[in-house]
Nucleic acid binder design. Structure first.
Lengths: 229, 229
DNA sequence: TGCGTTTGTCACGAATTTGTCACATCTTCG
DNA sequence: CGAAGATGTGACAAATTCGTGACAAACGCA
């Protein structure tokens, strides 16, 4: 799982700390103090993953992420953003911009490592006809059946699609707007809070087999299906 | 086991030979000299199976196969590739064309017939004449009889075909549109809700032996024959 | 041709799903 | 603590989907 990671962080202390941890974990680390410097590095080396501080002097992290997403060569490089605590508006904005995950400072090396591992492991899973299974909860798109530890579970059409999407994209936070796009369809006129209601209905349906705790609420960001415990 | 087969082969001699054999076996044969002609034919008639020469003038067989696989209406039509030599067979296998089987020229009528039967059995079981049985409900395509736990059941022609298709594809949800294509046939102009009516008539007929609960309604998706309890 | 059967459509009501709101609860932070 | 913001929850009406009975056209057969 050794990867080349680009770290963009202006605070020297944090940069050193993170670099040390990542190097210990066997990754090759490239450091940049600013967005501009990151762009220069990226011209020569294509990283496997980008750790990006959202607050940077000069060009902000958001703008840099936008540039990355617009570039064909960098489009598919996962981005994890580093945010200050409670910076909730930025969380949503970041996810919308195309960040794959976020992590709030201060964070433990353990947490950072886990996130990186998760993001790297998840390439671009599609919603296929394949059966999906997460911690005893299984969903079969072909027969349209959902079972928790073998027990059949009843859920409505929307809840089914929602669960299918989340199970094929685990360990990733999706904002309400993103879920509306992916599950309801693009350009639909629906209140964002409607997602909450369907998440609740989904949890209610999964409660039968205690699988409702698979769905995490990520305050300020959205929802996530966690395959871990 | 009479099927409509599209044969795409540019060598006139082989085309005649194969056509003769297939016709003898009771199949209806459509012939095309080129991929382009095949596309024209397919616009009007949906074949049950395609026999496709690998090497064709103009668009190659592989390209044609890819086109078929990309088309929603043709996606599920089985394809058997005809190759000249064994090593070509390997090449074709290497390219992911989505062909269901391969047969190397020259081949005996016996071998061709066997391959066709095998592919149809796998991809379109309702074309075969095998007796089907699900949870005490049995259907015999040959004698055209249906019995529930031994008791003879009466159903109309359409209900019979519908039940046959569903029993040969259990644990799979089909939308009304898919059922119309598969049971009524391609290019038919029938209201989707008509399927509901026939499902009801089928359920009514199966009610005699309590087998009506085999057919599940999957709200927002379609219908499913459940082999489970 | 006449009669019984099959088939496709429709209209209506029942059942379910869906989106929204109001209010409760919880978290964060001054 | 208390305000502000975010999420959970129960209720509800509109919308959608499905089941069902009726009916006329099409069909098959003697």
């Amino acid at each position: 799982m050794a990867a080349t990671i680009l770290l963009v962080e202006d605070e020297a202390g944090i940069q050193e700390l993170v670099k040390f941890n990542l190097t210990q974990a066997g990754h090759a680390v490239l450091c940049a103090d600013s967005a501009e410097q990151a762009l220069a590095i990226v011209r020569d080396v294509l990283p496997d993953l980008v750790l990006l501080d959202w607050m940077l002097p000069g060009m902000s992290g958001i703008e840099l992420a936008r540039l990355f997403r617009a570039d064909a060569r960098l489009k598919s490089v996962p981005i994890i953003m580093l945010t200050a605590r409670g910076d909730e508006r930025d969380k949503v904005l970041g996810l919308e911009t195309g960040a794959d995950d976020y992590i709030t400072k201060p964070f433990s090396p353990r947490e950072l490592s886990a996130r990186i591992k998760a993001v790297l492991r998840r390439r671009a899973p599609q919603m296929t006809e394949d059966k999906v299974e997460v911690r005893g909860l299984s969903l079969d798109p072909v027969s349209h059946r959902v079972t928790g530890n073998g027990t059949p579970l009843e859920l409505g059409p929307t809840e089914f699609r929602l669960l299918h999407f989340m199970m094929t994209h685990p360990e990733r936070v999706y904002s309400r707007a993103q879920l509306l796009d992916q599950v309801w369809g693009d350009h639909v006129f629906v209140e964002e809070r409607t997602v909450d209601v369907h998440i609740r209905r989904l949890r209610l349906a999964l409660e039968v087999t205690q699988h409702d705790n698979l769905i995490d609420t990520v305050r300020g960001a959205g929802y996530r299906l966690s395959s871990q415990i």
